[in-house]
Design a protein around this nucleic acid. Structure first.
Length: 787
DNA sequence: CATTCGAGCTTTTTT
DNA sequence: AGCTCGAATG
């Protein structure tokens, strides 16, 4: 069988003009093997070791993408496989796009039509569409996002009469995702876990949700992987087809794979056994969404005969930065172990600066950036990497007053905005009248007088007759069930819908969208809206129409938007980037500012509470990722005071500061710009005045001391931790404040909101108080004071 | 059925 | 503090 028989991905693909052997001949003869030039020995080995399983441990800045793309180029150029026989998986669309572009450069456009280069989800979808009927879907199935998922789950909960106050749909969604990430369908969820939600109904609800999805001919993101895994498991013939097709498999960011993805890869790799995974266990920062670092740690066991190649030569950062990062990450256990090195200069030492509060932090960083700017630095080579997005605001405000151009990376995605989702719902409905979720979303947007009551009737009818909402609507406009007003509104809507549906084939989708938005009154709705955001929303809608015009058809666009559309930030001009540490992975900047290195914020208390030691290690990897983004300058800050949820809190410097090797960091008094070579003793003496709150190697002493005075000075982070009961941090049990309460029964207390009262009962740090005015309330001890 | 007010939550984020 | 969601209200 000729290899190109495998290709059925559509008319876009033209078989190579030359047989594989021919390309190889051309490659070795001319400039074709240039892709090997300039690779270091390890990189080269990683590119040329083609047979059998291979794990490439690629540290930060060691040329990971280059290896991946060169490897693909090598496979193609030596004629080992056709483009259609190479599976290359990434996590994000951005990574996939970048890889495509770089391969095209390497082999001069011959990578055109690598149909199996994409995200896990995109590739799974492609496979699933071909065999949809085998897993109970039609090949036209819709992909629903988190928003739809939650709305659907609300219905499921409602049908089961479950109080979604007590058992929120969000929580269930999270739980189901979690199961799906672990490759568990309803039948295989451990009984204990299934019972944990809604008094034992968790498993049943999961099953109902899946049934609903099938009925709607829809799949959520988790299903894309889980269902294609099921497809492979239940249909060995189908699996075999793909096993044979994929002569070479490449996986990017292997440390981020979750269990389904791992199982999926493992099944596919059993064919040719040529799987190459690239990753860095030290950069695994997505444990909280199901990524399992163990996958990469177990690689050799999972794929017998695997070779491991380490890339440790760093091409990005200067010496001191690497040394500091290495010293920090060395505090983690359970690593495969890698040490980055560079032949380059030592460069500037990373700095650590203490500031009074987050406002000063923003001010100081703003000044430093202006200073850099005066020295000729480019703003697009400067980034501020924060732990949590609420930290961004302070910087934005400061930069606006300074007139410093910046951009925020991350934040709400384009297609997650309400107006975009509404517009998409219209389009989805027009493309497929039976899309109930879309129908429901826009039936009363803009207001048509068709509220909950009418919708409920439609629902009942649809369920009774096993038809879709739009079909139910068609029937109900002929019956007496609805009030005349509603019936007419529905009739008008259906007429519109039919007219638009008829236009799908007539008009280019951009125009179609404009027509629909216009005629439905949707655009009007926002034009009449006088709120500040309305103009932006209209702008976004225009952007959507513009984006649509680039696609061949409405369906092509809809497929694209659910899987592939990301907010491409129009980066016009040089701007400072503000983003979370998570968003920064894979990027690099000359100068990186790392604010907010305080206990509770970074490492984040919640991570510690929920994941214990593993959480701490993941936070540490996050710090490592942050540091290794810097090419020449890394600047760390911690504030002594930070406002959290409106309350000012005194904070303790992050333990990570103490893990930065003294020899390679510089402690700076940012206010005066003075530098302290020796900060150990002098700093600490100043700490309790909070005049010069610097990190010191002795900060543990401070922490110990703070523990002694915990009664009054306990920070909110610790407090929230205590509230949740005993917690494990770093494998140790952190006890609730042992002295149960400083108030006894009968004590007179004063509460900010409820006023004076008498303590009726004490339970740990919770007090039951009979307030003079407000009656009996349960309050936390920390919210009252002695009256 | 639409609007308004109060209660609860609040890390990270891709697909 | 500020936002989102749901219930009470007009």
């Amino acid at each position: 069988m000729s290899p190109d028989n495998f290709e059925e991905s559509g008319p876009g693909y033209a078989p190579p003009a030359v047989r594989p052997g021919g390309i190889a001949a051309r490659a070795s003869a001319g400039a074709g093997s240039r892709y090997l030039d300039g690779l270091n020995p390890e990189q080269r080995a990683a590119v040329e070791t083609l047979d059998g399983p291979l794990l490439v441990l690629a540290g930060a800045g060691t040329g990971k993408t280059r290896v991946l793309t060169s490897r693909i180029a090598h496979i193609l150029a030596t004629g080992r496989a056709f483009p259609s026989q190479v599976l290359a998986v990434t996590f994000t669309n951005k990574a996939a796009r970048e890889m495509k572009e770089r391969i095209a450069v390497l082999i001069g456009g011959a990578a055109e039509g690598m149909p199996w280069l994409g995200t896990f989800h995109a590739i799974s979808t492609k496979i699933l569409r071909r065999h949809a009927e085998l897993v109970g879907l039609k090949n036209s199935f819709t992909i629903i996002d988190t928003d739809d998922q939650i709305r659907l789950l609300k219905q499921v909960l409602q049908a089961e009469n479950i109080d979604d106050k007590r058992w929120p749909a969000r929580t269930l969604a999270y739980q189901i995702d979690n199961w799906k990430n672990r490759g568990l369908d309803p039948a295989h969820v451990p009984a204990g876990e299934a019972a944990a939600f809604a008094d034992g109904k968790g498993g049943k609800l999961y099953q109902h949700y899946q049934d609903r999805l099938k009925a709607l001919n829809a799949a959520d993101f988790g299903d894309l992987l889980l269902e294609s895994l099921r497809l492979f498991r239940e249909h060995p013939d189908v699996l075999k087809q793909y096993q044979e097709r994929f002569r070479y498999m490449l996986v990017d960011e292997y440390q981020d794979t979750n269990t389904v993805q791992y199982l999926w890869l493992k099944l596919l790799a059993q064919g040719r056994n040529n799987i190459c995974c690239v990753g860095d266990d030290d950069q695994s920062i997505y444990g909280w969404r199901g990524a399992d670092v163990d996958n990469i740690l177990r690689f050799e066991k999972d794929f017998p005969g695997a070779k491991i190649i380490r890339l440790e030569r760093n091409y990005r950062s200067t010496g001191h930065i690497l040394d500091v990062a290495a010293g920090l990450i060395a505090h983690n256990q359970g690593r495969l172990g890698k040490t980055l090195f560079t032949d380059g200069e030592k460069g500037d030492k990373p700095t650590v600066s203490g500031v009074w509060d987050s406002e000063e932090e923003a001010r100081v960083i703003g000044e430093e950036i202006e200073q850099l700017q005066r020295q000729g630095a480019r703003l697009d080579e400067v980034a501020i990497l924060v732990r949590a997005s609420f930290q961004m605001r302070e910087f934005e405000e400061r930069f606006i007053t300074l007139g410093l151009p910046y951009r925020v990376i991350g934040g709400p995605r384009f297609y997650e905005r309400a107006e975009i989702r509404d517009a998409l719902a219209y389009l989805r409905l027009v493309a497929q009248n039976d899309d109930d979720l879309a129908f429901e979303r826009i039936i009363n947007v803009p207001k048509r007088g068709l509220g909950d009551a009418s919708l409920q009737m439609l629902h009942d009818h649809a369920r009774r007759e096993h038809i879709s909402l739009s079909q139910a609507a068609r029937i109900m406009i002929e019956t007496e069930e609805l009030k005349p007003k509603q019936r007419q509104a529905l009739r008008d809507f259906l007429a519109d819908l039919d007219r638009w549906t008829g236009l799908v084939e007539q008009k280019p989708q951009g125009e179609l969208a404009e027509t629909i938005l216009e005629e439905s009154g949707y655009t009007d709705m926002w034009q009449k809206d006088r709120t500040a955001e309305a103009a932006g929303r209209l702008e976004n809608l225009k952007e959507l129409v513009r984006a649509m015009e680039e696609f061949p058809s409405l369906t092509a666009f809809l497929e694209h938007i659910s899987l592939v559309m990301d907010a491409d930030s129009a980066d016009a001009g040089a701007r400072v980037s503000i983003m979370t540490l998570h968003a920064a992975k894979g990027l690099e900047f000359e100068t990186v500012f790392l604010p907010g290195w305080e206990e509770g914020l970074f490492p984040h208390q919640r991570s510690l509470d929920e994941q214990g030691r593993a959480g701490l290690e993941e936070e540490r990897r996050l710090a490592y990722v942050g540091l290794t983004r810097a090419k020449r300058r890394a600047k760390i800050y911690f504030a002594t005071n930070r406002r959290i949820r409106g309350l000012w809190q005194t904070t303790i410097p992050s333990r990570f500061l103490d893990e930065l090797s003294e020899a390679h960091v510089e402690v700076v008094d940012s206010a005066s710009g003075r530098s302290y070579g020796n900060y150990a003793q002098s700093r600490f003496a100043n700490m309790d005045t909070y005049r010069s709150p610097y990190a010191t190697p002795g900060w543990q002493r401070a922490q110990r001391r703070s523990a002694e005075t915990q009664g009054e000075a306990r920070s909110n982070w610790q407090d929230s931790a205590a509230r949740r009961g005993p917690l494990t941090i770093e494998g140790e049990l952190v006890a609730k404040s042992s002295a149960s309460s400083s108030f006894g029964k009968g004590a007179r207390v004063f509460h900010m909101k409820f006023g004076p009262g008498t303590v009726a009962a004490v339970d740990g740090n919770k007090l039951t108080v009979d307030f003079d005015k407000a009656g009996r309330k349960m309050v936390l001890e920390s919210f009252v004071q002695a009256a």
